[in-house]
Design a protein around this nucleic acid. Structure first.
Lengths: 340, 340
DNA sequence: CTGAAAGCGCTTACAG
DNA sequence: CTGAAAGCGCTTACAG
């Protein structure tokens, strides 16, 4: 950053004051068109670009959003970030990203950095270790709006963008029931996490509402819904006296691994076991048979987060304390549950 | 951002000057330990956090890196960003990201934004449309270092982090040859892009060096190496009088689609056709049979980019103009090429 | 060991 | 329609 042209330089060249240059470039109505043209021409000629740090400093607005995600390389989060960046870009905001690596300590450190960086607002998905959100409270005092998505705090009021995990799971399970399944299993995520708890509850509620029994031997608990855990769960199903005829998995990885384990054991999908996943990962379209899954709208979640956050930044109307937006999901029906 | 505590506030409280507060918090050697302690205590007590925008403005250093990627939601790029963020975080840099969406126009706009944002350095992978990099030249004049990765400019000197596509492809093809393949096909990427050109060349060179003929009917051209294009290519192979016995694909998507098309046609992988992909996408470990592929070190590419960039930012030594670092790849041998 | 002063490049209320 | 002036919150060369 050397010998940048400043407003002062332009002013000297044009025999005008820096105030006038600033206003001309900002298209201020009080400045004559003739002057605006002269200034713009000189600015282009000299390759002037405003120093937005100086402007941010002066205005106490940085037009940047801080985003804290567990990991950027998880597809769900990269889609969310993509949605955030897209919306932010269109509205002239910048996006600065941080990874908590699912570690509370790192998340806390990042909030300290964000506190000094003067971002105009923050979007975050909590780390898996975070049970207490007090490190986010400081932003309330500083007047920096927060929006959480996916893994959201329960211990304090904040704006949130979520999907209806309960309802989505209800619908997914209902789809299996309506397809004729009577013994439906569930591979469940970590029950310390609200979204996975809701998915289990939605599954149970659907069974109940169709007068099907909730058979605990058909519900498999996992820690992180990893591919390997999915393989282990599928093997457990195989060791049961009777196989389930339907399986709703709390994510796509476990659903894919179940498909593979079952097929290796000559079990026909969906004829013998119909399978539904959750999240619409890219692999769900590639695995054979293609996986029926819940589109969790990751990109839209990012867009919605950015939209809500920017509205909160720009609304001087201090009446709204927090806002919770629930996005619609969509059950994408593919071969893995298309029976007969 | 309201009623933030400033150095001046602390100074007033402690009957010291702002200069002393600044130096005390910056652990300046000239300040007595007693004063440092007093200042630190008061700062903690009042919840002081430095305004880093003011500091950036003053120092003309923002400690932030601008990153331009085609899309964040492409796994390769999200891994690279993850590597960048990780290294940057450890070195107290922030990472601001932009997506070009593979559009030259948007890439140009982003460079204009970055010019005003005063980032200390820029990391970028060129958009697919970019053939002319003159919109990056301004950063040379501004003294803002640039590092390109993966898709890098050929028309001007710049620091680059790349892998050796030629050699990696040579090794991958050689592996097929050594496994006993004699008729090896190649699904090639867009030949306007250097990396895909290099992959094709590496494949051809390996054949030649083992005295195998280069059979153009076994080389399929694609536009974007998409899954669907892979399916189409695989079908073309099936329509040939004789199938290849080995297939080196310029990415994993096309390799996966080839596996699926072949298997649907009762062709045994790897016994009848051995297949090798490129990039080590997550799906390569999941597809059956598991895909042999080239680990392109996306995360390390990000780390290396950030490392090189930060070194260029912090080295006042103006002797180095640009630096090109080639990373080692690794051939991961899995079932899809393990013959016999 | 500490302070007074200048200045980074903008923006804007005030004056004319 | 344009300008002079103040100030955002830091940092640091200079002085003592």
């Amino acid at each position: 950053m050397k010998n940048r042209i400043t407003l002062k330089d332009l002013a000297k060249d044009l025999n005008l004051s820096p105030s006038t240059i600033s206003r001309a470039l900002g298209n201020h109505p009080a400045i004559s068109d003739a002057t605006k043209k002269r200034v713009q021409k000189k600015a282009d000629e000299k390759g002037f670009t405003p120093n937005s740090i100086a402007s941010s400093f002066r205005m106490k607005k940085t037009r940047s959003l801080g985003v804290i995600v567990p990991r950027i390389d998880i597809h769900f989060h990269s889609l969310v970030i993509s949605g955030i960046e897209d919306f932010a870009y269109k509205n002239n905001y910048n996006v600065t990203i941080y990874q908590s690596k699912d570690a509370l300590k790192r998340e806390q450190e990042i909030t300290k950095i964000l506190q000094t960086r003067m971002v105009d607002g923050i979007i975050s998905c909590l780390s898996i270790e975070t049970t207490n959100c007090k490190h986010f409270k400081k932003f309330n005092k500083l007047g920096v709006p927060l929006v959480f998505y996916d893994r959201v705090p329960t211990d304090f009021d904040a704006s949130k963008i979520v999907i209806n995990d309960f309802e989505s799971s209800f619908t997914a399970t209902e789809h299996l029931i309506k397809s004729g399944c009577k013994r439906i299993g569930h591979i469940a995520g970590n029950q310390k996490t609200n979204i996975f708890k809701a998915r289990l509850e939605g599954y149970k509620a659907a069974l109940k509402s169709y007068d099907l029994p909730v058979d605990e031997t058909l519900i498999m608990q996992t820690n992180s819904l990893s591919y390997d855990e999915g393989v282990a769960c599928a093997k457990k199903y195989l060791s049961l006296p009777e196989l389930p005829d339907g399986l709703f998995c709390a994510n796509d990885y476990t659903a894919v691994s179940a498909i593979q384990v079952f097929r290796k054991n000559e079990i026909k999908i969906p004829q013998q076991v119909a399978i539904v996943g959750f999240s619409n990962y890219p692999i769900s379209r590639i695995i054979e048979p293609n996986l029926t899954t819940v589109n969790d709208r990751a990109f839209h979640m990012g867009e919605a987060s950015a939209k809500l956050l920017i509205r909160q930044i720009e609304d001087n109307n201090d009446i709204i304390d927090s806002e919770i937006i629930t996005l619609k999901t969509e059950l994408i029906i593919r071969e893995s549950s298309r029976i007969g």
